[in-house]
């Protein structure tokens, strides 16, 4: 119990550069998948939300999508997840056209969406694939919640719930992880913790990551590349070529200003 708690605390400390160089877990090889959007459009009734949008996301890239509310960010995620079909154009993951839901894509929702009537471990192992207990325990350990496996979700804090949701997404080793403003409701301190955690896990697993956010600072902190969406299309496609661990600094501020200018 004590050693687990210590491990958890240790894991939550800001990771240094070395930890990124040698990933925490080298259980699996890099399995990020490329995502290609070719002139996709999405209309709801007569209203056009996305308009001939083209975007090519490389395998294992960390992309942040920024934009005002109603710019089509969430719609874009739902299309890539396969929850909604595209109206026009082609959307492919690793070269295969997306048709409906798929196991290699996982979505982290804005709210954690845990099943309140199942213990934390059973929430993480929701698929109940063979050997789910072991993989779920492993995933919980990755997010630093190994000691909460048998708790009910109701007793967890907001940040802990999101970490459980993250563990649930990681269990199936997704090739693409989509995040729909999952840290929006958290306080600043917890949010910073979650950023560290996400970057550490992403460095280890190398899934392709698409993060939706309206927080430009968050986008600059986390992503390799920032896409600004406006009126259903790409208004800016900005590389972020900074070393990891970029809480502040002149370059980060400059990038933030560029992005803000296009939102």
């Amino acid at each position: 119990m004590n050693s687990v708690a210590q491990l958890k605390l240790k894991r939550l400390e800001p990771p240094d550069e070395e930890e990124f160089a040698t990933p925490v877990a080298e259980r699996e090889s890099a399995l990020g998948l490329p995502v290609t959007l070719n002139k996709i459009s999405k209309r709801f009734g007569g209203r056009s939300v996305l308009n001939t949008l083209s975007l090519s996301i490389e395998a294992s890239e960390f992309v942040a999508v920024v934009g005002r509310s109603g710019c089509g960010k969430t719609t874009l995620l739902r299309l890539i997840t396969g929850l909604d079909p595209v109206s026009d154009g082609h959307l492919a993951i690793a070269g295969d056209e997306v048709r409906g839901l798929q196991g290699r894509v996982r979505l982290l929702f804005q709210d954690a969406r845990l099943l309140m009537w199942q213990r934390v471990l059973n929430n993480v192992g929701i698929s109940r694939d063979t050997g789910w207990r072991e993989t779920a325990k492993q995933a919980l350990q990755d997010v630093g919640l190994a000691d909460r496996a048998q708790d009910w979700p109701a007793v967890l804090s907001g940040g802990q719930k999101q970490r459980v949701a993250l563990a649930r997404a990681l269990v199936s080793r997704p090739g693409v992880l989509l995040l729909d403003e999952p840290f929006g409701a958290l306080d600043a301190l917890t949010r910073a913790e979650m950023h560290e955690l996400l970057i550490r896990i992403w460095s280890a697993h190398r899934f392709t990551t698409i993060l939706i956010t309206h927080d430009v600072a968050e986008a600059v902190t986390l992503a390799d590349r920032i896409i600004v969406l406006r009126d259903g299309n790409v208004a800016l496609d900005q590389k972020v070529d900074l070393p990891r661990h970029r809480r502040s600094g002149a370059e980060a501020a400059r990038l933030q200003n560029i992005v803000l200018g296009h939102v």
Partner: peptide, 8 residues
């Protein structure tokens, strides 16, 4: 919706 996304 979550259940569907997670393959249930």
């Amino acid at each position: 919706e979550m259940g569907r996304v997670y393959g249930l």
